[in-house]
Design a protein around this nucleic acid. Structure first.
Length: 555
RNA sequence: GCGCCUGUAGCUCAGCUGGAUAGAGCAACGGACUUCUAAUCCGUAGGCCAGGGGUUCGAAUCCCUUCAGGCGCGCCA
């Protein structure tokens, strides 16, 4: 509806310019918005005010000229007015809303999607937690955000690939191996001081028991370095399998798991470093090799090869990101924890050094989750191993509640997650509020079938035209906003916009439900109202799908 | 010290990338089930948009600055 108006207004401006009423042919972008109050119409535009300077005319005069050149061929506008400093307000014909409703029903599962992606290839890399321990709640938020962003972009016409980068190389993996190895020796009766910088969690002991069962005796005979290496591989593999399972239970799957080690094995890390050295982006100082990230806006240059010859994590990250573009992605999106924000500049630098544009890379920084139970904070410490895993949370509150709550905030806002609140089946907990709409509507349709003998709801102008109460028109109008919400959440990569929209739509529906009865003796009106709630259900379903939350038939 | 993020109702948060009189939920108070699911609805009350400057027809939104909180500033990942 908004887009139709936009085009009409632009056409009016052009027509006015052609007949000389408006001297300047340079028009600003037409913006149409939804006024806060009903008194200002269904839609309004500020175009006249924006053109005042370039046309050298008072805004209200311009508004008047625009209106006189407006051609409303499909008769969708009931009334227009010029208000305030120069706003043009539009009041829409009820019949136009009815056509919109039919359009929604026809578009069905595709309603809301705008093809802004045009098939362009894009990658979302998310979670990418180190395989040194189980996923915790913070990873859950990253998973929910990343998965939903991927859903939304894909729905809007992008060719999206979901990837998990596995840090299966480097010191932490050795530490993991050592941790398991030392626990193993303890199991074998040796007294060993377990170092503080090793992983403390109980799961390390579990892993030690497993590897003891499998190859305990053989491991004992091996030299320590080799045994630690074996433990590391075993532990990382096992933990990674657990992570995969946790994510599947959370409804998140990846197209590809990308191994950091494979970048070393294939020589890509060395190759990219050499290439950059020859271009002068990498230089040697104090026995180490540095990448000149300052040339791309970083505060200081960063080490890629240490004095001891070992490459830093950053070195493989350069190779990894370069490789992403070589795979044909036009744009790469990384979802990171907010504690990694200091890393953005250097990775951006690496990407620019590899000849890509800055805007081909985007980082979504997901802020931390404060877990609590009835307002009392639950302690979270990775080192001590005292943390609540994602698995625990999903088990306790359910997948839908967890995912929905993770998406009730802008990702850059810290999130308070209360376990007891997440379980509540009241208005405190918005998940059920939205899902309830879906169940309720399904129930009405079920009843309509059973008692009114309505087998199939097929829509037509005549029955839909019976929708005339303000609540009904408002509902349709709200449904009509959905595509813009989806488009914005795709452009800004902000899933929470959909969450909030669904809550608003749910509220509007519940209000309508309490005020008007859908099923009645009036067959035509019943049919019209069934069409309306069918459309509401469809939008709820489409929206929940983008969030990765189920739409239950019964509750 | 430097960088990034946050600051909006008592609490938790939206605010459509500058629009008209600032929006929800919770908590508080008062109402609505013989009804298509009360996991719901209706009403009342609640504000110096952290403070101060600027930019313009117009600012919660953009710029500068101060204050408060979070996170980060390794040849760790």
């Amino acid at each position: 509806m908004k887009d139709i108006l936009k085009e009409m207004i632009l056409a009016a401006a052009k027509a006015a310019n052609q007949c000389g009423a408006l001297p300047n042919a340079d028009f600003p972008d037409v913006t149409v918005e939804l006024p806060k109050t009903q008194a200002h119409g269904d839609y309004s535009t500020n175009l006249a005010m924006q053109m005042a300077a370039s046309q050298k005319m008072p805004p209200r005069k311009i508004a008047d000229i625009l209106l006189s050149h407006l051609a409303d061929e499909n008769r969708i506008i009931a009334k227009t007015e010029i208000a305030g400093p120069g706003f043009i307000n539009f009041f829409i014909q009820p019949s136009a809303w009815h056509s919109l409703l039919i359009n929604i029903l026809e578009t069905d599962t595709r309603f809301g999607g705008t093809n802004i992606g045009k098939g362009r290839k894009l990658q979302v890399e998310f979670v990418s937690a180190n395989p040194t321990g189980p996923l915790h709640v913070g990873h859950g938020r990253g998973a929910a955000v990343g998965d939903s962003v991927a859903n939304i972009l894909s729905f809007c016409g992008y060719d999206v690939q979901r990837e998990y980068y596995v840090n299966d190389s480097g010191r932490q993996i050795r530490t993991l191996g050592l941790s398991v190895y030392l626990r193993l020796r303890q199991l074998m009766g040796q007294t060993i001081d377990f170092p503080e910088d090793c992983y403390q969690g109980e799961y390390i002991r579990d892993l030690a028991r497993e590897i003891q069962k499998k190859e305990g005796a053989a491991l004992e005979k091996k030299p320590e370095a080799e045994a630690v290496e074996n433990c590391a591989r075993f532990a990382a593999d096992s933990i990674l399998k657990g992570i995969d399972k946790d994510l599947i239970d959370f409804g998140v799957t990846f197209d590809r798991w990308y191994s950091e080690q494979s970048l070393y094995d294939s020589g890509q890390v060395d190759a990219v470093l050499q290439e950059m050295e020859s271009k002068g982006s990498v230089y040697t100082k104090d026995g180490a090799k540095w990448f000149r990230t300052t040339a791309f806006g970083d505060e200081k240059d960063r080490v890629v090869v240490r004095e001891n010859g070992l490459k830093t994590y950053f070195a493989s990250d350069i190779a990894y990101h370069q490789e992403k573009y070589q795979r044909g992605f036009e744009r790469v999106i990384d979802v990171w924890g907010a504690d990694h924000h200091g890393y953005i500049k250097r990775v951006t630098a690496a990407i620019e050094a590899c000849g890509r544009r800055r805007d081909q890379f985007h980082v979504i920084l997901v802020h931390l989750v404060n877990l609590s139970r009835e307002g009392v904070p639950v302690a979270m410490s990775t080192r001590s191993g005292e943390f609540v895993t994602l698995q625990d949370v999903v088990k306790e509150v359910g997948r839908d509640a967890a995912r929905f709550i993770f998406l009730t905030r802008h990702y850059e806002s810290p999130l308070d997650f209360d376990l007891e609140l997440a379980k509540k089946k009241t208005n405190d907990n918005p998940v059920y509020y939205v899902q309830y709409v879906h169940a309720r509507i399904t129930s009405i349709i079920r009843k309509g079938r059973a008692e009114n003998g309505i087998e199939q709801i097929d829509w037509d102008q005549k029955s839909v035209a019976r929708l005339e109460t303000p609540e009904e028109i408002d509902l349709i109008k709200l449904l009509g906003n959905y595509p813009e919400v989806v488009r914005l959440s795709a452009e800004l990569m902000e899933p929470h916009r959909i969450t909030y929209y669904l809550m608003e739509l749910a509220a509007a529906f519940h209000g309508y439900y309490n005020r008007h009865k859908v099923l009645s003796d009036d067959a035509e009106l019943t049919k019209g109202r069934l069409c309306l709630i069918l459309a509401v259900r469809q939008v709820i379903r489409n929206g929940l799908k983008l969030l990765g939350v189920s739409a239950p038939e019964k509750m």
